[in-house]
Design a protein around this nucleic acid. Structure first.
Length: 660
DNA sequence: TAGCTCTTCGG
DNA sequence: CGAAGAGCT
């Protein structure tokens, strides 16, 4: 230990990535997501090499055993990892901590994914918030700021990995390579590219964010979501940079800039809130948060589902969005709302199906964010959209794509249709259609469901839902047990078609069989360079150089915490073992730096961060622990909720707080 | 100024 | 589409 303390007051480090996607259950990452992960890890490994170490990779079906294996092979005495808040990770990480601690390894975990830990943000009575705006207001007025981002290390002392074999990780197969090649033209994964994307955004489009954020052509979004998802840039760094800009603009009296920052931060806040909700309601990715939605009679129609995926809905905006998603793995936030709202309200398909499809196809697929998004759209949150509201793609189309450019880009078959009819071709006069070469029902579909009949059907479904709910209530009052095997309780299975499209195939070099979801049902127009952002035309950044360029001074006078027995600390293992979010690579060293230098101060806030792995009982499916607001206590203005006060009841699962 | 219409915008 | 706010009388 002594010999390495001159660098960072810290021992040798081994960075580990364990690829154990089977642990994610249904949520095996999709093709584009795996593509990103592969590039990101290569980038990370390259950076680590330039700092003096490299990434140890393990293919596993049991990440904890794999970690133990690495610990044993390297003689590591400490393990560091960052918190994740999805239910699978929470349970697994808690177990990892228990098992490794029992093996004599000192385990510490940290917050690197959020501005504040979910348990830090509570209302005046100490209870978690149930609406976003209250939550976010609180976050912005916390008595202490989110911790400042840390600088990358200058150098890492590598642990001895000579007896620790790395597995060759395979993230794609031959059939995927062709499609993946296109992705590289549009996106540059990796932490230094994430830094660039952040800088570019903050110095450019951020100023006009409030003006442009509604446009379907996504030129003004930050494009940070995949980088954030994979842990390539920390949300604290984003927050920090953006706030600095805001202070600057506020001082200049730049009202538009100030407003833009607030709106952009709100979207950062939604990402925070998604973790917060996932932590407080661990089943939020599979069950509606408002109890009565369990009784909604979803239309379990795989034909509709397929039509939605293939863009055969007859609504140009929905169609265009689905094509963009399939072709690029990306969709502007507004269009996500359009296609998912259509899915839930017009087709009335079970939202989990749509969420799963997003998971399989989005480059920034993120369980918590997507769950929050779909629940918001589905009206299953106290502050989400009213369930009985249907977004009409026609009206929304003229708002976010007023000239029809977005639709024409993705639907060349409609290219010659005048703007006046581009979002509702079914109303266009025959002569116009003819001139545009469109024959509805033949070379362009008629609406699969008319909006008006969707409204009627939705009303009926809602009254059915309330009847079902009342019946269930009555059954309970009559002394029947609230059975958890209740059909309304168990999520609708993923469609047969989706499962049939799954292929079981061994992937070369992987010691296990993986299940790869496939959808081969979408035709897309050939891609042109105009689809890609101009600034990404030159890809393949020289990673080594960018590491050198962005390397910064780091403090060298780091204390080692009292509770770390420095004499026995020869090596530490850093686990970066998530498909879900790969922690920023400088975490193990930098984080310690920050933690340790403050560990002796009296700040209870800091102390809270050091070793807490949040858990709750995974087996608990106890619905009785619900949040019950009084009739207007929950702060919603939704008339829908006022009509249905029981909507205030959120399902909650008992949370056991535990200090490590 | 209360009250009305028009506009905007949605977690 | 509807609620909230701006703007007008």
């Amino acid at each position: 230990m002594g010999r390495s303390s001159h660098v960072l007051g810290f021992g040798a480090v081994i960075a580990v990535f364990v690829w154990a996607p089977e642990e994610e259950g249904h949520y095996y990452p999709g093709r584009v997501s795996r593509w990103w992960l592969k590039q990101s890890l290569a980038h990370l490994d390259s950076s680590l090499k330039s700092l003096g170490t490299s990434l140890v990779t393990k293919r596993s079906t049991d990440s904890i055993s794999s970690l133990l294996e690495v610990v044993k092979a390297t003689g590591a005495t400490q393990l560091f990892f960052n918190h994740l808040y999805d239910p699978i990770s929470l349970v697994r990480d808690h177990r990892a901590k228990e098992i490794l601690t029992a093996q004599g390894v000192s385990v510490r975990s940290f917050n690197a994914d959020l501005l504040y830990e979910p348990w830090e943000v509570n209302d005046d009575e100490g209870r978690p918030f149930t609406t976003f705006s209250a939550f976010w207001e609180k976050c912005l007025s916390m008595p202490y700021d989110p911790e400042a981002p840390l600088l990358p290390p200058k150098r890492i002392i590598s642990g001895d990995v000579s007896r620790c074999r790395s597995d060759n990780l395979v993230f794609d197969d031959e059939s995927e390579k062709g499609s993946n090649a296109l992705l590289a033209r549009a996106w540059s994964p990796g932490w230094s590219n994430a830094d660039k994307a952040l800088t570019t955004f903050v110095n450019g489009p951020l100023l006009e964010y409030s003006q442009n954020r509604r446009k379907a052509d996504s030129a003004t979004t930050s494009f940070l979501s995949p980088h954030l998802h994979f842990g390539e840039v920390s949300v604290r760094k984003v927050f920090h940079f953006v706030r600095i800009k805001q202070v600057l603009w506020a001082n200049e009296g730049n009202k538009a800039g100030d407003e833009s920052v607030n709106l952009f931060l709100k979207s950062i806040g939604l990402r925070e809130y998604s973790r917060y909700m996932s932590f407080n309601h661990p089943h939020s990715h599979e069950r509606p948060l408002l109890a009565h939605l369990r009784y909604f009679p979803w239309v379990v129609d795989e034909g509709y589902f397929k039509a939605w995926r293939q863009g055969r809905t007859g609504y140009p905006l929905v169609h265009a969005g689905m094509r963009e998603l399939w072709a690029t793995g990306w969709l502007h936030d507004r269009i996500r709302v359009v296609v998912s709202s259509f899915f839930v309200k017009v087709l009335q398909l079970p939202w989990r199906w749509g969420m799963k499809y997003f998971w399989d196809t989005l480059l920034d697929a993120d369980l918590e964010s997507d769950a929050l998004g779909w629940q918001y759209i589905s009206g299953t949150l106290p502050d989400g959209r009213e369930f009985d509201r249907i977004d009409n793609p026609q009206f929304v189309g003229y708002k976010c794509d007023p000239h029809g450019e977005y639709v024409r880009r993705w639907l060349p078959e409609l290219a010659r249709l005048p703007t006046e009819w581009i979002h509702h071709p079914w109303n266009a006069p025959e002569s116009v259609l003819e001139a545009a070469g469109i024959e509805l029902g033949s070379n362009y579909p008629l609406p699969i469901v008319e909006i008006d009949s969707a409204k009627v059907r939705l009303e009926q479904a809602l009254s059915q839902m309330w009847q079902n709910e009342a019946a269930a209530r009555a059954a309970i009052e009559n002394g029947m047990e609230e059975g958890h095997g209740d059909s309304a309780d168990s999520p609708i299975a993923f469609p047969q078609a989706m499962q049939m499209e799954m292929e079981h195939e061994p992937v070369r070099n992987n010691p296990v069989i993986v299940t790869v979801p496939r959808y081969e049902d979408q035709m897309v127009p050939s891609m042109t360079s105009s689809l890609f952002r101009a600034d990404d035309e030159e890809n393949s950044v020289d990673i080594r150089n960018s590491v050198l360029e962005s390397r910064a001074e780091v403090p060298t006078d780091v204390n080692v915490a009292e509770n770390t027995r420095r004499d026995t600390l020869d090596q530490a293992v850093m686990q970066t073992a998530r498909t879900n979010a790969t922690p920023h690579f400088n975490f193990a060293v930098g984080r310690r730096n920050s933690e340790d230098s403050t560990a002796e101060s009296s700040s209870s806030i800091r102390e809270r961060d050091g070793g807490v792995v949040p858990i709750w009982s995974p087996s608990s499916t106890n619905y009785s622990d619900q949040y019950v607001g009084d009739d207007n206590g929950i702060g919603t203005s939704s008339s829908y909720l006022q009509r249905h006060p029981q909507s205030h009841q959120l399902m909650n699962w008992q949370r056991l707080s535990q200090t490590g």
